[in-house]
Design a protein around this nucleic acid. Structure first.
Length: 316
DNA sequence: AATAACACCAACCGCCTATAT
DNA sequence: GATATAGGCGGTTGGTGTTAT
């Protein structure tokens, strides 16, 4: 089955957009809104398919898009969210205002992924690779394996804690709903309008899916419940990131900023916007450096999964 | 100066989900 | 309930600019 491509009509233009096309699209949307993307091209006088117009708008022409280099904060957030969410770019984009999922995806693939690989970190699992030159040097391989193991336990624990937090939060929202049940529309309006507005501001695309919580609401499901879940979900991610950032400041940040060469350059360049573009392999085959990287990376992950200083068996 | 190799990123493609009919 | 359609998402590609040889 499947769908036929939306651009299968003959004569529709493909490839890079000209400034004239951009102007047409911008002018039309500014005046009429995009409405149905399917019918937009014809109305706007464009020989493009609707899909292409939508992409051009969401990834390039929207006025609230921030372009250019990612700053340190954004890079950290991407790495942290990727560790949490995987390749769910639209969900990640939700937490990076003014950045598009496409841009984040590209940045991850061209910059961040490579950095992690260089550090001996698997960019998919965010765990140290087993037999990298780094660990096989004999320096920290044993430690890394132990740490990796502990990280798995810690992340499992984190997940459980997060679930509890979410559940209690959902309960809280549920109470809110029932307490305002005399005027359900009022509550619905508050949540849906503000939430939608925020989503529109933050990202044109979807939010994180939250299957566990969602299934709990199946049966009593309503748009109110879904909005509540979305809100709780976003809160949870935001607070998780916040905790991560607290712990990461000395770990990952220290690593990225202080570590020297390829990593540090990019970040300091971002801060000062003076240095040239990073040049990939720039000079750093220093094994000590990578070992230190790896340790710091793990450090940061542990800081994330176990941010509270009080509750702790020391990890090292 | 020529050109090969690499890096970057805009745009496309195919699949999935939600919604309408 | 089945089918068609639109919108959205993530993976991938291809053009272009930059750097290295």
């Amino acid at each position: 089955m499947g769908r036929s491509p939306c651009c299968d009509k003959m004569g529709l233009k493909k490839g890079p957009w000209t400034s004239e096309e951009d102007q047409k699209l911008l002018a039309y949307i500014e005046e009429h809104g995009h409405g149905s993307w399917r019918s937009l091209p014809e109305k706007a006088g464009l020989h493009r398919c609707g899909k292409s117009c939508r992409l051009r708008w969401t990834n390039y022409l929207r006025p609230d898009i921030k372009r250019g280099k990612f700053n340190l904060q954004e890079e950290q957030t991407i790495i942290q969210l990727h560790a949490l969410l995987g390749n769910r770019w639209s969900a990640i984009a939700t937490h990076l205002p003014k950045r598009t999922d496409n841009e984040i995806k590209n940045y991850w693939n061209t910059h961040l992924k490579k950095r992690l690989v260089k550090m001996g970190i698997d960019p998919v699992t965010h765990k140290p690779k087993n037999e990298t030159p780094l660990t096989s040097l004999g320096g920290i391989s044993k430690n890394a394996a132990t740490l990796s193991h502990m990280a798995q336990w810690e992340s499992a624990r984190l997940e459980a804690e997060a679930r509890l937090a979410r559940e209690s939060k959902l309960l809280h929202y549920q109470t809110k709903v029932s307490s305002s049940s005399s005027s359900p529309h009022h509550h619905l309006n508050i949540i849906s309008s503000s939430d939608q507005q925020q989503q529109q501001l933050e990202s044109p695309t979807s939010t994180v899916s939250f299957s566990e919580a969602r299934t709990e609401f199946v049966g009593s499901s309503s748009s109110t419940c879904l909005n509540i879940i979305k809100e709780a979900e976003n809160d949870w991610i935001s607070s998780t990131i916040h905790e991560f950032e607290g712990g990461v400041e000395e770990g990952l940040t220290g690593l990225l900023l202080g570590g020297g060469d390829s990593l540090g350059r990019s970040f300091s360049a971002d801060k000062n916007e003076t240095a040239g573009e990073t040049s990939g392999g720039g000079g750093g085959d220093c094994n000590d450096y990578y070992e230190e990287d790896n340790k710091n990376y793990l450090d940061s992950i542990f800081s994330f999964v176990d941010p509270s200083p009080s509750d702790s068996t020391p990890l090292f």
